[in-house]
Design a protein around this nucleic acid. Structure first.
Length: 758
RNA sequence: GGACUUGUAGCUCAGUUGGUUAGAGCGUUGCAUUGACAUUGCAAAGGUCAGAGGUUCGAAUCCUCUCAGGUCCACCA
């Protein structure tokens, strides 16, 4: 035992060594002791091939819970995972391709998939090591990738079950399509932004209409007015001949109570192929769906140009527009409208909210496309019921309301993505049947063969062998929504039966609708049980001024840099200290430095304790371990008071841990260690320590070891480093030590031995 | 239009079911210090808890309204 500690604590020379000790000895794995209660948390899988950002460091809350429960003697599992992150990873890979002057369309599907797979695996590992740097006591022996074959198998099984139950269906409707990324998205992935766009007023037969999207007017199929609008009442049901840029078109006026008479001129053009409201309206009035914009965001006039006997003027125009991007066509159209005397005015001050791609910012085009949808409401109802029945608790409580609100507002969920990197949808179409069907009028063409992953050999209807698989992959949230049961079925033999439902789901509140609600819906439906009993939501990490971190602002805090500079314990403590669950927190270097100072303060309390113990040893003083006998024989009032205070602190911190009040616990421990023990108890009793007073030293050591235990979930490294150096009764490392109980009475000793650890 | 949320010290934030003189970190000021720690200690300054009203023996905390921020959803032709 080397009791001469360095003057200052050096996390850099301590942390890696301690982490290696824990990991090497398998301390992160469940104890699997008979009778021990299960406690399980699934780490929200970070992107496999990206670096961690400081938001990930908030998962420290999970490590705190895990370490606490491990010390309670629970059968504790914290399961790590790595996310293939479907579209996001493909997006990164496409950027990488672009740098080499290539695009994903230069490769066939299999090659592209393989290349991305290799790309991900070449970049893999950094994220995992960063989690280690943070001190996270994850059971790495169970680490699982979201494209693990067992995970995929579970996802396929779910898809088939949902399909068989009629909860998954195929439909052709307008999808939120990003023409740059070449894929559709669910409603949640559309990012609405406030934007200024010109509002064009144009002559439309006897009317004037206002539109922000003049390019779609070529394929308007009707005009809609509010049935209560006296100005247009007489026109309802009438078909009018209207002069457009490509000649006359006939259009019927239909009633729509949702038309706002005060907007523009109170008359709305209807374009079912490019507006979801119009699409629904079109269904009601049996209007054709006639697209003018293609999946690359270009104008498509082939329907017009293929007609015979087109006037040369109109042909010229259509050819001019054809194949060009919308932004290019708009000004051309404005010119032509002017020429024809159809443009009335342009309101340049018009602002509206417009959907954009959350990833690349391109304006989302609603385009008609066949996709797989999940019928959400039956699943959402089950989730809401579970919340109402208190089968799931939210921390903080207010998110219960948010979750329920989301669950009641979800539309059917488009789970098809036109990506390669992901889990390919196990749906096949028989080409033979398809050809036959297309010859029979009115027969539904959605004749799909769905399997639980096995490649079908022949069509069950016609026994044809010409089966073609859907080229789409699942929305990654469809598979992540199944993570709790999918992961536990894949991670270890009995993990699912032992650890499902998991104890706590801990993640950022920003993915409540994307992930938490989906896990609830799919988890309950697929397993009959809630996937987690408690949802703890943390806030966003912001900069020292409360501003959102972003690369462009240059205010991004790099967690690894902070760890190098101040130690993981300091960063961890800074993230929980003075932070309420569910609230955003401002993180500054000053705060982390302050917490580094606290780690150093602990170090020096330990250093002083060791020096005093050495000093006593030289005087041949025997320092007894703190026991019940010693406790009842205490004579010094200062010692008695301190013992009673550490007991009170223990209960109070334990209560905080149970109630997920980690900030309170951290604050109490900080306050007690620094200002009670270091500033007062040590200072007031220095002479006694100098004299080698065995009672004082015994009490001091006991109290300090207790503090190390209580602090261990928060600052695992410095506490373990000190624990290893201080003479104590047991040989266990701190990570496996038992959580302190009020004091060493007979009763609590029983508890200690029954937990199997001391 | 709907939901949620914030306003507490110079800055960033805690503050449980209402309960003494309202707390912390950082910052500021003064002093101290060669044996645990300058990554330190002691002391100090600094707050009408956004405002108004109400409930209560008692309100930062509960209720109503006002003002000022933030986030999300719906609608926007």
């Amino acid at each position: 035992m080397d009791s001469t500690l360095d003057k200052a604590y050096s996390p850099q020379t301590t942390e890696d060594e301690i982490y290696a000790l824990w990991e090497k000895n398998g301390y992160f794995s469940p104890n699997d002791k008979k009778g021990s209660k299960p406690f399980s948390v699934l780490l929200p899988p970070p992107n496999a091939n990206a670096d961690l950002h400081v938001g990930h460091a908030m998962y420290v809350v999970e490590d705190i819970m895990i370490r606490y429960h491990r010390m309670l003697g629970d059968n504790t599992l914290w399961l790590p995972g790595a996310d293939h992150a479907g579209f996001e990873t493909q997006f990164v890979y496409e950027k990488h391709l672009a740098k080499m002057g290539k695009s994903r369309f230069d490769f066939d599907r299999e090659t592209l998939y393989k290349d991305i797979w290799n790309f991900v695996h070449e970049n893999r590992g950094t994220m995992e090591n960063q989690l280690r740097k943070l001190g996270f006591s994850l059971d790495w022996s169970r680490n699982i990738f979201t494209l693990n074959p067992k995970i995929i198998a579970t996802v396929y099984t779910s898809f088939k079950k949902l399909f068989d139950e009629g909860l998954i269906y195929r439909d052709n409707r307008l999808v939120n399509y990003c023409t740059k990324d070449g894929t559709g998205f669910s409603d949640l992935e559309v990012l609405y932004i406030e934007r200024n766009d010109p509002l064009y007023y144009m002559k439309y037969g006897p009317f004037t209409i206002a539109t922000a999207r003049p390019e779609t007017k070529f394929r308007d199929t009707a005009l809609a007015v509010n049935p209560k609008d006296k100005r247009y009442k007489e026109y309802i049901g009438k078909t009018l001949e209207i002069m457009g840029l490509l000649g006359p078109i006939s259009m019927t006026v239909i009633p729509d109570p949702e038309v706002d008479p005060s907007f523009g001129t109170g008359i709305m053009k209807v374009t079912p192929a490019h507006d979801s409201h119009d699409f629904e309206l079109g269904k009601k009035f049996n209007l054709p769906v006639t697209p003018i914009i293609d999946f690359h965001g270009r104008m498509d006039f082939s329907w017009f140009l293929s007609q015979k006997n087109i006037e040369p003027k109109y042909r010229e125009r259509a050819e001019k527009y054809h194949g060009k991007k919308i932004a290019i066509v708009r000004p051309l159209m404005v010119e032509d409208l002017k020429t024809d005397g159809l443009l009335i005015k342009i309101d340049e001050a018009y602002t509206h909210r417009i959907g954009t791609c959350w990833k690349c910012g391109t304006v989302i085009e609603p385009l008609p496309l066949e996709q797989w949808y999940i019928k959400v409401s039956p699943l959402a109802k089950k989730a809401t019921d579970a919340i109402n029945k208190k089968q799931v608790a939210f921390v903080p409580k207010r998110f219960e309301k948010t979750a329920k609100q989301w669950l009641s507002n979800f539309h059917d969920w488009n789970i098809s993505r036109q990506n390669v990197w992901g889990i390919r949808i196990p749906a096949w179409k028989c080409q033979t049947c398809l050809n036959q069907i297309s010859n029979i009028k009115n027969k539904k063409s959605d004749h799909w063969i769905i399997t639980d992953g096995a490649i079908p050999t022949e069509c069950p209807e016609c026994h044809g062998k010409n089966l073609v698989q859907d080229t789409d992959t699942f929305d990654t949230w469809f598979s992540s929504g199944q993570w709790p049961f999918a992961a536990l079925r894949a991670s270890g033999t009995n993990d699912y039966s032992k650890f499902y439902p998991t104890s706590v789901m801990e993640t950022g509140y920003d993915i409540l609708p994307w992930w938490v609600c989906r896990m609830l819906m799919l988890g309950i439906h697929m397993t009959g049980k809630v996937p987690f009993k408690t949802v703890y939501l943390h806030g966003l990490v912001r900069d020292s001024k409360g501003q959102k971190m972003s690369k462009s602002k240059g205010n991004v805090v790099n967690p690894l840099k902070m760890i190098d500079q101040f130690g993981a314990d300091a960063l961890r403590f800074a993230l929980v200290f003075g932070t309420a669950a569910g609230n955003d927190l401002a993180l500054s270097e000053d705060k982390i430095r302050g917490m580094r100072n606290f780690a150093n303060k602990l170090w020096n309390i330990g250093r002083f304790l060791l020096l005093s113990l050495d000093n006593a040893k030289m005087k041949n003083e025997e320092i007894p371990f703190y026991t019940e006998t010693l406790h009842s024989a205490l004579t010094n009032d200062a010692d008695k008071r301190l013992i009673s205070e550490i007991n009170m602190l223990t209960s109070s911190v334990t209560k905080d841990m149970e109630k997920y009040r980690f900030s309170d616990a951290a604050k109490k421990l900080y306050e007690f260690s620094w200002h009670r023990i270091a500033d007062r108890y040590i200072e007031e009793n220095k002479t006694r320590f100098g004299e080698g007073d065995s009672e004082a030293l015994s009490v001091f050591r006991h109290v300090f070891l207790t503090i190390l235990k209580l602090l261990h979930p928060f600052m695992p490294f410095v506490t373990e480093a000190l624990w290893q150096r201080i003479p104590r009764l047991t040989t266990h490392p701190l990570i496996l030590s038992s959580w302190p109980v009020r004091r060493p009475t007979t009763m609590s000793r029983k508890l200690l031995s029954s937990s199997g650890r001391s």
